[in-house]
Design a protein around this nucleic acid. Structure first.
Length: 364
DNA sequence: TTAAACAAGCGCAAGCATAT
DNA sequence: ATATGCTTGCGCTTGTTTAA
């Protein structure tokens, strides 16, 4: 079976962007591009473009269209959940390291009741030869990751953020070790940002290496926010406070790293962060460093660890003069939303007050 | 051009595995 | 024993291909 080429006359993918009226998934609708890629990635011919077919395309013994409004969202979701969800699932798994069916559902089919569609898509990807995704099970939960073949397929689509492909080994290892909870906490964070409309889940290049004089800085994630700015993301579950502080110092070293390259008359040399995050006219300041504290067994509660971290980091010079550092906890983030006032600024002069991302101070 | 055959996707429900 | 999550099988619908 398998590898049936797409139909000879592809039903002109059409500019789906403008057509998605009937269901118009509100703020949370996934970016259109991955869906388009989904068509490319899917191994079998599939028919539904992103926009739900004009009613009646899907199962319905009760004749066509115009039926109860109630049935419409479900139909639309079903159309959406068709073959092209497979491509989105693969891209999402390639983007994040690891995810549960529930997390994938939250990102890709937020309006869907169950995880059936996602799990079916995962099963399809698993059944490919070679398998494009892999799975491990533990504690009544399955954890899915991208295999090298799946990563290659996702990378070939050109839809993947450039830095994601290189952690293959780690990615797979993470699914089999204790690192998985760390990865899942990051995914929960991604979901919170996605739900809040603060950042699309596709805009999270995970674990890109950032050169500093003291070695590479590898954030847990870098998020491209909806307003075009970026932020570094650090997920903490079990790290010692000393190591957390050391991380801050690494960020400071990255910020202060000398410019590389020669530049020219029209364009002076820039440091890595300026090149990557400051924008062409250098109008953006150094991205904020966001720490998210996640629950972990046999550890203090996230908000307790957050408070201790504030206490210790408050005396770090760079935090007070050069970096914008803010914290939150996974429970607060998922309950309240990434776009709300859930971020506590680290540093002297800042108290318990929570702020929104938009109102964080700019780094100097 | 039309009708039959085939392939694929979907929803639903039952059954299985595992943790509490 | 119960609850939860996952897999699998079944029947239905729709889209595509092929032959008359």
């Amino acid at each position: 079976m398998t590898t049936a080429p797409t139909p000879p006359t592809p039903p002109a993918p059409t500019d789906t962007a403008a057509t998605a009226s009937p269901t118009a998934g509100p703020a949370v609708s996934p970016a259109p591009s991955p869906a388009a890629i989904g068509r490319r990635l899917s191994v079998v011919a599939d028919q539904t473009p992103d926009s739900p077919a004009p009613a009646g395309c899907n199962s319905s013994s009760e004749s066509t269209d115009v039926l109860g409004e109630a049935s419409r969202p479900r139909k639309a979701a079903a159309a959406k959940a068709g073959a092209d969800i497979r491509g989105e699932v693969l891209l999402t798994l390639a983007q994040l390291r690891l995810a549960t069916p529930r997390q994938l559902k939250a990102l890709l089919l937020p309006r869907q009741q169950g995880t059936d569609h996602v799990r079916r898509a995962l099963r399809n990807l698993l059944a490919e030869s070679p398998a494009l995704v892999g799975r491990t099970n533990r504690a009544q939960q399955s954890y899915w990751y991208c295999t090298p073949a799946g990563l290659a397929e996702a990378a070939a689509s050109g839809e993947l953020a450039p830095t994601t492909g290189r952690t293959t080994g780690k990615r797979i290892a993470a699914s089999k070790t204790g690192l998985r909870e760390h990865s899942l906490a990051l995914v929960d964070t991604v979901i919170a940002f996605h739900r809040a409309g603060a950042a699309d889940f596709a805009d999270w290049p995970v674990e890109g290496a950032h050169p500093t004089p003291a070695g590479n800085l590898i954030p847990d994630g870098v998020v491209l926010l909806a307003d075009g700015a970026s932020a570094f993301m650090e997920i903490d579950r079990t790290m010692s406070y000393a190591r957390l502080i050391a991380k801050l110092e690494r960020y400071d070293a990255y910020r202060n790293a000398p410019a590389s390259g020669r530049g020219n008359a029209a364009r002076p040399p820039r440091s890595h962060w300026q090149e990557t995050y400051a924008g062409p006219p250098l109008q953006r300041s150094f991205p904020p460093v966001l720490f998210v504290f996640a629950p972990a067994p046999r550890r203090a509660a996230p908000d307790t660890r957050e408070a201790v971290f504030h206490e210790r980091a408050r005396n770090v010079a760079s935090v007070n003069y050069k970096l914008t550092v803010a914290t939150t906890t996974v429970p607060l983030l998922t309950k309240t939303g990434a776009g709300k006032a859930v971020w506590r600024i680290v540093g002297k002069g800042h108290g318990e007050e929570h702020r929104t991302l938009a109102t964080l101070p700019k780094a100097r």
